[in-house]
Design a protein around this nucleic acid. Structure first.
Length: 448
RNA sequence: CGGGGCGUAGCGCAGCCUGGUAGCGCAUCUGGUUUGGGACCAGAGGGUCGCAAGUUCGAAUCUUGCCGCCCCGACCA
């Protein structure tokens, strides 16, 4: 992409409403634009990242055996009357009426709808287990939206729903998502920690929040710091096999959010040198809720004995749009974003320091074409303007690598390559630059 | 929803207390000098001061109502 064609409205000054780094940087880097409280338009740069995050989520869901579909944003109220949640949900749910005065709502989640869809098509235990997911915009009329996309009212969420014949089988589905989540967040460079979450009236131990540690996190968390470097299962993991050992391993050490924290327990189970109290951002939440919806909504299947019984369900959410905020919180400095390669809007930025200069233009054009040929996403800064402005802009948007092409280096046939993550620079010849970048990009994108 | 604050040019703000017909920085446009980390000089364009009503000879400024947004708290992916 040529910068001169792109739409990248940057802000030099910090908008007054942005309190935390991710919100500030998303506004300054021209990724989002606010349209109302907790409602954002995704500008080209932000949208590129959003799509990359979405794709990683999708790939790991598919790997775990879930099947993608798409449910509507608008749902009929009657569906929610079946589960009893139409009245229970409260003002968080945006209720609307259509031209015939039919009661509708903008979906805050999809348990009811997926249950209706499932019950319409499945009769026998032989059709189980099933895991279905979609990635769709949700609306929750939060009392107080804040922190940009971290707590918006409209947000993009991946939600998966599992259907099993009994609790033991449901646990297997739960474990699949548990592992899928560990992998999903790791691929984005995040160290996520599963923490016991409140299961509410249903009870049991089957609800976990996936937390990424960040100073600006919304909740206080307490954990054994050895969890941070626990090894995430690789892509050869057999999702049809027994995943219980992985679950056991990750849940063997203490980890709890504020609500679930028990200090006595914490001190008993965690050696003092490993105790960690920090703040965290919730980026995923998985939940087993048994027959909560299948019973009232009559989603049953015939068992081997010919008798009908309600299916056991679970739901598994990932805050896709929220992840942008979480990733920036984890990877940024005073100058801007520092995207991990896997979610970067472009892998590399080519900076033409002297647009209009024959040698510079030529070298840049060669690099631009060759990099794209090599499968690298390139943003080519072909604009006029001063060097300082170009450097600052590229640092702000935070592409993993910058290739600086200027008359000074070209005299000796060289360009400068800067790595955004640590600022390390290296002079390489124009000829070897493509290989240099392409190799590092493909290494960084390798899925393990 | 309780408490606090803010709406003045694209962005950041001053002016409001003490009414007199709107200003600064950045950005934008033109010309020139510059050119490897957000340049400089000269000039120009751009605002029904959130909306509505009221007080007044006169309202960005005072009064009332409404709308929007932000911050703290309780709630949430």
């Amino acid at each position: 992409m040529r910068l001169s064609r792109f739409y990248l409205p940057l802000l030099k000054e910090t908008p007054s409403e942005a309190q935390i780094a991710s919100h500030r940087l998303m506004l300054r880097a021209g990724m989002i634009r606010q349209q109302g409280a907790g409602i954002y338009a995704w500008l080209p740069l932000g949208f590129l990242v959003l799509k990359k995050i979405e794709q990683i989520v999708r790939e790991e869901q598919d790997r775990a055996g879930a099947v993608e579909m798409l449910m509507p944003t608008i749902q009929p109220a009657d569906l929610w009357r079946e589960s009893g949640r139409y009245d229970a949900y409260g003002k968080e749910m945006l209720r609307i009426t259509d031209r015939s005065d039919r009661e509708m709502l903008f979906g805050p989640t999809n348990e009811e709808m997926i249950t209706e869809i499932f019950r319409a098509g499945v009769r026998s235990y032989k059709d189980l287990p099933k895991m279905l997911y979609h990635i769709q915009w949700k609306f929750r009329d939060e009392i107080r939206p804040r922190f940009g996309v971290m707590r918006g009212r409209e947000f993009l969420m991946k939600d998966t729903y599992s259907f099993d014949i009994d609790e033991a089988e449901a646990r297997r589905s739960y474990n699949k998502m548990f592992v899928a989540y560990l992998r999903t967040f790791a691929r984005m460079g995040l160290k996520s920690i599963p923490m016991r979450a409140d299961t509410g009236p249903i009870g049991g131990d089957l609800s976990h929040e996936f937390i990424v540690l960040a100073e600006t996190g919304e909740s206080a968390v307490f954990c054994d710091e050895r969890l941070i470097d626990m090894e995430v299962p690789d892509k050869e993991t057999d999702f049809d096999g027994d995943l219980q050992p992985v679950f056991d391993q990750f849940t063997s050490l203490y980890a709890a959010t504020d609500e679930m924290h028990n200090n006595e327990d914490f001190e008993k189970r965690v050696p003092s040198e490993n105790r960690m109290s920090a703040r965290g951002i919730e980026i995923g939440h998985i939940f087993y809720f048994g027959t909560k919806y299948s019973l009232p909504m009559k989603a049953s299947v015939a068992g081997a004995d010919g008798k009908d019984s309600p299916v056991h369900m679970g739901s598994y959410g990932v805050g896709v749009s929220r992840l942008l905020g979480a990733i920036i919180e984890a990877f940024h400095d005073d100058d801007g974003c520092k995207w991990p390669m896997s979610v970067a809007p472009f892998h590399v930025g080519v900076i033409n320091l002297k647009s209009g200069d024959d040698a510079c233009d030529k070298a840049c054009a060669t690099l631009y074409d060759a990099l794209r040929e090599a499968g690298v996403d390139v943003l080519y800064d072909d604009t006029g303007g001063r060097a300082g402005e170009k450097f600052a802009r590229m640092d702000l948007i935070g592409l993993p690598y910058q290739v600086v092409v200027g008359p000074r280096g070209l005299k000796s046939g060289n360009v400068e390559i800067k790595r955004r993550s640590d600022g390390e620079r290296e002079e390489v010849s124009v000829d070897s630059a493509v290989h240099f970048i392409a190799e590092r990009v493909s290494d960084a994108l390798k899925v393990e």
